[in-house]
Amino acid sequence: MTAPSTHPRRPGAEALARIDHPSPATSPEDASPHRFPDGGAWRTEIPSVEGPEALAVVLEESTRLGLPVHRVSQGSGVWMLTDDEITGMVQACAERSVELCLFTGPRGTWDIGAATRTDSGGAGPRARGHDALAGCVEDAVRATGLGVRCLLVADEGVLWTLHRLRTAGVLPADTTFKVSALIGPVNPASYAVYEQLGADSLNIPSDLSLAHLTEIRRSSRAPMDLYVEAPDDLGGHVRMYEVAELVRRGAPLYLKFGLSRAAGIYPYGAHLREHALATARERVRRGRLVLDLLARHGADGDMSPLGSRLPGTLRRFPTPEGN
């Protein structure tokens, strides 16, 4: 773990003070009291790493730019990868002590139902019917059998079901579940419910305010995932200058380096290869820009050690299997 940040510099504060322009005061009461179990306040994540080639680009580029990477995540789903592709990604990540997170199964946005294509969005990416739920379970069993230990979910019922399977020993006990930004909670009560349902880290929408982060932290210590730069379909927000404050209020926090102004790549296939590799490379570069900014502001301390992945003890609803 890097040295803790004591008094990070506010962006522009010293220059503004020279002309007697006041900067807002920082309240210690806004700071999160929580940390990862290793003592770190933040970790990093590269999203949209859709297969072995994209992963190789991310690992190579992160070495070249000196970007520490704790986790890579994929959005197309376990079902879009062959066994050989999954085992290759598992091995490559293990060699670098990087956590691999794959998305589970069918989603409503790809289903035959028409409601998700209307202005209302219908039920969004949630699993429609028993078969979609079962498909997510199938993906989870298959992926963990191939060595994957982090799974992305976009449905509350899928999350609860997978947590029960973890509790019952069907899935490995050290499997972690990450809630997708597509259904991310937007208030403290819903955030706490997802934690109780089995979530080990939760994407929150990237347009939540700093005050919202503080409110959430008063109700839950479950790790938070936040796009510092969000894809366009999640708002396209770029919050680089807020990163130090996002960490201060939101810890324990995964800093996700997304990419705006880039075409979507889900579900990924070879027809999107060049775009996927180019955007994977640029996400790493964006991450380097964010960490450089943190360093300039004296706020780059408190990073979790590379290789750390577990969330610590979290609150859960009791299950019939015992918890």
Rank of each mutant, 00 (worst) to 15 (best):
T87V: 09
I216C: 05
T176A: 03
L213Y: 14
V141P: 06
P305Q: 12
L226W: 12
G301E: 02
S180E: 10
Y194Q: 13
P205M: 03
A31N: 08
V228S: 10
R273K: 12
R285D: 08
P231A: 11
V148C: 04
R283A: 02
A295R: 07
G77T: 09
A230V: 10
I46K: 00
N203A: 07
G77V: 04
G169K: 03
L213M: 12
G147A: 02
P125V: 09
P37F: 10
M240S: 10
V148P: 08
P28K: 00
A262W: 01
L202S: 07
V186M: 09
P68H: 14
G12L: 11
E229N: 10
P24Q: 08
T167N: 07
S32C: 08
T176L: 04
R164A: 06
R286E: 08
G51S: 06
D207K: 02
E282P: 00
R261D: 09
L293T: 13
P223E: 07
T63G: 11
S308Y: 10
H163G: 02
R71A: 07
H70L: 11
A115W: 14
G77L: 05
A127H: 05
L59K: 06
R96P: 02
G301T: 02
A251E: 08
G298E: 02
D111Y: 15
S180N: 08
D174V: 10
P188L: 12
D302M: 04
F317C: 00
P172F: 08
P4V: 14
A263L: 07
C150W: 01
E61V: 07
P311S: 07
G121I: 00
A154G: 13
N203E: 05
G157F: 15
G121R: 15
S220G: 04
G184F: 00
A3C: 12
H297Y: 07
T26F: 09
A222V: 13
L162W: 01
T161R: 06
S76C: 09
S260C: 08
P22W: 07
V141G: 07
P223N: 10
A168T: 05
A15P: 14
F103R: 15
A181C: 09
G145W: 02
A143K: 00
G124R: 01
T214N: 09
L291R: 01
R64S: 14
D302V: 00
L277M: 04
Y227G: 11
A173L: 10
C101M: 10
H34K: 04
W79E: 03
V69C: 04
S23C: 13
